[in-house]
Every structure is written in C-alpha cells, then in structure tokens.
Design a protein around this nucleic acid. Structure first.
Length: 209
DNA sequence: AGCCAGGCCAAGC
DNA sequence: GCTTGGCATGGC
C-alpha cells in the first residue's frame, strides 16, 4: 500500500526534484540552513531569508561561524522565529563545521539545540544522501486520513513503518516526501479538497466528515 | 482579517 | 511520560 500510494502520487505530480537549492553555495550547508529555517514556516519566507544570506555572501561556513548573532538574526528575519533559528544555526555550524560528513550522525544532530527529528532527518536525507524517511505534519495528516495509521502515532514509529514497507532507496525517500508535501498543499489541506483527489479510491477519509 | 506555514523546546502536570 | 504555550514573519 505504501508503495502503491507513492506510485499514484508520482503519476499525478511527476518528479519533484527536491531539495530546492540555488547552486550558489555549498549544497550541504544550504540544505541544512533551509531545513532549520523552514521549521513551521512557509517556504516562501525561507527563500527570502536564504536570498538575504546569499546576497551578503553569508551562506558560507566561515562567515556563519564568525557572524554576530544580531546580524544573523536580521538576515533571516523573514523566516520568522528568527532569534531562536539564529541560535540554532550557530549551534549547527559550531558543531558540524570541522567534521567530516561521515561523522555526522542522527544522534549528533539531535544533540544540537533547536534541531529535532524532522530537521535532522531532512539534513541526513537531502543533505547527506542517507536513507532516513522524513516525517512531518503533512505525512501524519495524510496517512491518518488514508486510514493507515493512528493520529497519535509517534515520529520514530511512523518512520519505521515507512522504512519497513519501502525498499531502502535514498531517491525514493526523497521523492516520496516531496510528493507528500505537494499533495497536501494541493488536495489534502487542513480543510481538504477531496474533489478530484488522486488518492480518493484508496482513502478512508478519516476525520473529514 | 484571520488563518496558516515542510517544528522545537521548556515548563507544568 | 504527555500536554501546552511561546516563538514571528508574510502570503492568501
């Protein structure tokens, strides 16, 4: 069922080619900073913040390592929660700066204050090409409505369900998460538009009526 | 003009 | 352990 849903979404929306990056900065850094900035935040606002950093040549390990926290705050302000996120970015850069990529584990990322499971897994999957399935609010909403999981399911449990029911494939994990986000923005919104939904025939419509 | 967006943490039961 | 409140901007 999990693979079938993937196939249906892929047929409907095509390849998403995530994670979006500018190509003007270190890709791993840009993905990581984007993952922090997008916590509970619209991607459009994240792009403004990333563009501020890029235009000041601040999307850079050395610059971020040395930048004053007040300046970092002002550059990322459009992304919201900017004081907290500025601290998180500083924590992240200080911790990861001098490490080789193969030293960056999930446990290491989760010890960084301000980085939780979704952010860690996004960095691991999209930034480091490691097979960690990303769970977010969209994923839970969609799969609860489909009737496949309980609404109080825990992050690690749901991640395990996905990883047990899919081949371990980084490209598949990347694409599937991106498709879920697209689908939840298009049809399975907070107030869902079920008309013409490509998953209608396999949906239990839990919580809709 | 309110509601929402690709969470996380600290505090209080 | 689980629930709740705070964090903040900008688009629709």
């Amino acid at each position: 069922m999990y693979f079938e849903i993937y196939n249906r979404l892929l047929l409907e929306y095509g390849h998403q080619n995530w994670w979006p990056v500018s190509g003007k900065a270190d890709t791993f850094l840009e993905i990581s900073i984007g993952a922090i900035l997008t916590q509970n935040t619209n991607w459009q606002n994240v792009e403004k913040a990333l563009n501020n950093l890029l235009s000041q040549s601040a999307l850079d390990w050395d610059v971020l390592y040395k930048i004053h926290i007040e300046r970092l705050q002002s550059l990322i302000k459009p992304a919201g929660f900017y004081k907290r996120k500025a601290k998180t970015i500083k924590n992240f850069v200080k911790t990861v700066y001098s490490l080789n990529k193969d030293q960056i584990t999930r446990d290491l990322l989760l010890k960084i204050k301000g980085i939780g499971k979704e952010t860690a897994d996004s960095i691991l999957l999209y930034g480091l090409e490691k097979p960690f399935f990303v769970i977010d609010a969209y994923t839970i909403r969609l799969f609860v409505r489909l009737g496949l999981v309980n609404k109080d399911i825990k992050y690690d449990k749901l991640q395990h369900v996905f990883q047990e029911n899919l081949p371990e494939d980084v490209s598949l994990y990347k694409e599937y998460h991106a498709l879920i986000v697209n689908h939840c923005k298009t049809y399975c919104k907070k107030r869902p538009d079920c008309i013409n939904c490509p998953l209608e025939s396999v949906c239990a419509k839990n919580g809709i009526i």
